Simulated assay, not measured.
Amino acid sequence: MKIPVMLYVAITTLLLVIITIAVNLNTPLNWIFYLTCIGQMFVVIMVYKVLKDNYTTNKSFEDYYEDHPIREYDNYLKT
Rank of each mutant, 00 (worst) to 15 (best):
M1G: 12
M1S: 12
M1Q: 11
M1T: 14
K2Q: 09
I3R: 08
P4A: 02
M6P: 00
M6R: 12
V9Q: 11
V9W: 01
A10E: 12
T12W: 01
T12P: 01
L14R: 11
L14H: 04
V17D: 05
I18Q: 09
I18T: 07
I19G: 06
I19V: 15
T20G: 15
T20D: 15
I21S: 13
I21K: 12
V23G: 11
N24W: 04
L25Y: 09
N26Q: 08
N26F: 06
T27I: 08
P28W: 06
L29G: 02
L29Y: 09
N30Q: 11
W31F: 15
W31D: 02
W31K: 06
I32G: 01
I32Y: 03
F33T: 09
Y34S: 08
L35H: 07
C37I: 14
C37T: 13
C37K: 06
I38P: 00
I38L: 09
M41A: 14
F42P: 03
V43E: 06
I45T: 09
M46F: 00
M46D: 02
V47G: 02
V47I: 13
V47P: 00
V47Y: 08
K49N: 12
K49M: 05
K49A: 02
V50W: 03
V50I: 12
V50M: 10
L51V: 04
K52V: 06
K52H: 09
D53E: 14
Y55H: 10
T57Y: 05
N58P: 03
K59N: 08
K59T: 02
S60W: 03
S60Y: 06
F61M: 13
F61D: 13
E62G: 09
Y65R: 02
Y65F: 14
Y65K: 02
E66A: 13
D67R: 07
D67T: 12
H68E: 08
I70M: 12
R71Y: 07
R71T: 06
E72P: 00
E72N: 14
D74Q: 13
N75Q: 13
L77E: 11
K78T: 10
